[in-house]
Design a protein around this nucleic acid. Structure first.
Lengths: 341, 341
DNA sequence: CTGTTAGCGCCTTCAC
DNA sequence: GTGAAGGCGCTAACAG
């Protein structure tokens, strides 16, 4: 398979095989059955192989008005959680669509300009993780789209969510059962809805369970171990003074930061402070102490989102427009000493 | 900005503004200075705003023969390390190119078919993380490309690497200084070159430093905390019998698995076994014990790779075709008790 | 300066 | 079952 100086076009293949470009198109797209004679089909296939031809998706997209691209818009790829989502998506999309990720800067939703560039690619569909309403407004079109992890999104938009509210409630119930009466909450400053829901559900549940969370015991920072560590180190004195003995974290990354700071401060987890997070990262089970965390099934979320998108792309409307995946609380050493379990 | 049913094309804008499509193209691409009258330019701008027009990159790419896409091919996105690479790349690419990630299944290089689909997009350039030679062969063209983390790649291919060999040597030297004489190595089974270099450099250094690494003390598994944990649990008895007191891990993820298993086995790290890894993941500093690890500057790698690519895209040839970034050993509790440092 | 023209590579009618 | 022709939206080259 020698590499020709020039791109191999369908026209070259057609000439080489002694057929027209229409026939080449049919064969190359697997639409030949019953429309192209066996003999010509073989010839074309042969020529394709010989010349190393592949369909130019630019020309194809232009002609068809749409590409075979599915773009997964991911505001925060640093979350290891995300790799699992991709695995799920890929398992469904297979070879029929080409999956590409669009990553933005740390936790930020794409700007309007970036959104337009995305649309300029004429993707067949979009999978959007934790979209902001603003982003969806920018999109403003009938583009097939499924949102992931978008708990408060407009009901008309297909979405797959995780039951983080239940997770937050489980955390609080767990704290209550352990006898805590004063808690703090370390929020993430990226204002995605899932984080808002986590916080609000935590606070609401706290009230129900009679756990006090003072406004001064709520703070937030970026999803970054180091930043979280520094923030906690700063705030701990005051929280301790307030009588805080339990801490809910918006993400396991925050919890890691707290663990790190605690070690530095000589603060014992969980006897002096119980810490719980969300996401159940792979590392959460293996840290020391292990982090009690709300497990979310990322692979399944990716899978279901891709399934919904395919339904839409195939012209069927999804059975359930929005679905919610269950969460479960993984109790580990950061809230409860090993022996007590 | 009302959304019309149909896509807004340059022709519509031209009509609306009373100019030709060529003028619209010039203005929309910022190439109007000195070629379009102020008056017409304003009119076009006005029309663009009014209609909500944006350049269709499909049509544009077709006409120009190349897109403004830079595709980052990433075999293993689950590595948190990777998010940093992206940050670095983005900081250089800015708005001039559109960065998209192509992800494959866990650690595998793209298949030839996937590669062709990638090429079908006519990317302006490719950034490839840990490419296999096979992948580069499939590419077979004069496409601007920069490899990342490809220590053994053909010298004619621009690449940015990290000095993992030095890192491996540092680990061994550290072990030697601590008095270890028998070590094991837990390799990653994804056969990328950087992993081969890590292992070989480790073994070579071990020989120089008089540390014995029995063939039976080398094993490998996927880059996955759980899998690594299970493998170590299985092998530890035999390694201990061989007198192994130090363990080099191909990645911090492996080291995490080992830590996890050690806790289960009641094995004390580092007094019974010293463990070191590569990558210095954010979690490595905050686990307990912290993991001694070879730090690699991922952000800088992304930045430099993007810079090289830009040079190529701008028609300049990179000053240095290949460069290597230094690594540094972060010593933590997994090899040396806190007090001893 | 500005408009016209001719493709870029492909797919989809529409005749044959 | 096949080929010729038109057009997707844009840009570059060329006339005016």
């Amino acid at each position: 398979m020698k590499q020709p100086a020039r791109r191999v076009t369908a026209a070259m293949v057609a000439e080489h095989a002694g057929v027209s470009t229409a026939t080449v198109s049919l064969v190359a797209n697997g639409k030949s059955s019953g429309r192209v004679s066996k003999k010509n089909e073989e010839r074309v296939l042969e020529a394709i192989r010989e010349l190393g031809y592949y369909v130019d998706s630019i020309g194809s997209s232009l002609a068809k008005g749409v590409s075979s691209l599915v773009i997964l818009v991911a505001p925060d790829i640093s979350n290891p959680f995300f790799a699992k989502v991709i695995t799920g998506v890929r398992s469904v999309l297979g070879n029929d669509y080409q999956l590409l990720l669009s990553v933005t800067d740390a936790g930020l939703s794409p700007s309007a300009a970036e959104t337009r560039r995305l649309l300029g690619l004429r993707p067949a569909g979009l999978l959007v993780h934790a979209p902001t309403q603003e982003f969806l407004d920018d999109l403003a079109g009938p583009l097939p789209l499924v949102a992931l992890d978008a708990p408060r999104i407009d009901e008309s938009i297909p979405a797959v969510n995780m039951d983080v509210a239940q997770g937050a409630e489980d955390v609080v119930a767990h704290f209550a059962k352990l006898g805590h009466t004063k808690a703090a909450y370390l929020d993430a400053s990226t204002g995605t809805d899932t984080l808002t829901v986590r916080r609000e559900a935590f606070l609401a549940a706290a009230q129900r369970y009679g756990i006090e969370v003072l406004p001064s015991s709520i703070d937030s920072c970026m999803i970054d171990v180091k930043v979280a560590s520094e923030l906690f180190e700063q705030r701990w004195d005051s929280w301790r003074a307030d009588g805080v003995t339990a801490l809910g974290c918006a993400t396991d990354n925050h919890a890691f930061g707290v663990l790190h700071a605690a070690r530095k401060l000589g603060l014992d987890i969980p006897s002096q402070l119980a810490v719980a997070g969300f996401d159940d990262l792979p590392y959460s089970a293996t840290s020391s102490p292990g982090i009690t965390s709300v497990r979310l099934n990322a692979t399944e979320m990716g899978r279901q989102a891709a399934l919904k998108l395919r339904e839409i792309l195939d012209g069927r409307s999804p059975q359930e427009l929005q679905s919610t995946l269950p969460s479960s609380l993984m109790v580990r050493g950061s809230t409860q000493p090993e022996g007590a379990r």
